[in-house]
Simulated scan of single mutants.
Amino acid sequence: MTEPALAPRSAFTGVIVVWAVAFVAAVAVGILVAEEWRIPWMLVAFGGTVLLSFAVQLWYGRTDGFILRVAGSVLGALLLMGMISVGFGLAALIPA
C-alpha cells in the first residue's frame, strides 16, 4: 500500500500551466503565421495543448478528479485560443 502524500501538489496549477501554454501558442501562431495558414496551425497548437494537458495531469499522479482536471484544461485552452483567433480574425478584416 502507498502512504498518502502529506502535502499534495495543487491540481489547479497544472490547469493554469496548460492555459498559459495555450495563450502563448495562440499569440505566436497569430503573429508568426500567414493569414491563410492560421486556422490549420491553431488546430495543431490546440492538439499540442490537449497532449500537454494529459501529460501534466498524468505527471500530477492522482486519480481523483483526473477527468475533471483534463476537461478543465482542454476546455479552457479551447476557449482561450478561440477568443484569440477571433481577435486575429477581426483584425484581419481591418484594411491596412
Rank of each mutant, 00 (worst) to 15 (best):
L93H: 07
S10Q: 09
L68F: 00
V56L: 07
V44H: 07
T2W: 13
E3M: 14
M1V: 10
F54Q: 04
G61T: 05
A5E: 05
G30L: 11
G82K: 13
A28D: 08
I67Y: 09
W41R: 07
V24E: 00
V17A: 10
V33E: 07
G87F: 08
V33H: 08
A96W: 09
A55H: 01
A92D: 14
E35W: 13
I84M: 07
A55R: 14
A34Y: 00
I84T: 14
S10G: 08
W19K: 02
G82F: 07
G89C: 09
E35I: 14
A92S: 15
I16V: 15
V50P: 07
V15P: 07
R69W: 04
V74Q: 05
P40I: 13
L32M: 13
P4C: 11
G76H: 06
P95F: 05
R69N: 11
V18C: 12
A5V: 14
R69H: 11
L90V: 04
L79T: 09
W19A: 04
V15R: 02
V29I: 15
L78W: 11
R62F: 01
A77K: 11
A71Y: 02
I67C: 02
T49Q: 08
V15C: 08
V18N: 14
E3K: 15
L80Y: 09
L6E: 04
L68Y: 00
L78V: 06
P40L: 13
F46E: 02
W59P: 00
T2H: 12
T2Y: 11
A5W: 06
G48A: 14
L90Q: 06
G76A: 07
A34W: 02
F54M: 06
G14R: 03
W59D: 09
E3L: 15
F66Q: 01
V24A: 06
A28R: 05
A96L: 12
V27Y: 13
W37Y: 12
W41Q: 04
L78I: 02
A20G: 08
E36S: 14
I31H: 10
V27L: 15
V74I: 15
G76N: 06
L93P: 00
G61D: 02
G87N: 04
A25W: 04
V70S: 06
V17E: 04
V27N: 06
S85T: 10
A26C: 07
F88M: 05
M83P: 00
E3D: 12
L80N: 09
F12M: 01
F88C: 08
A22T: 11
L68I: 01
F54T: 00
A25V: 05
A77D: 00
G14W: 01
A26W: 05
W41M: 14
R69P: 03
A91V: 04
T2P: 12
E35P: 15
V21L: 10
A45W: 10
A20P: 07
I67W: 12
V21N: 03
A91P: 04
D64L: 08
A7G: 00
A77C: 03
L80K: 05
L58F: 11
F66L: 14
W59K: 04
A20W: 03
Q57M: 06
A92E: 12
A45T: 11
V44E: 05
A71H: 01
G89R: 13
T13A: 15
A7M: 14
W59N: 05
L52W: 00
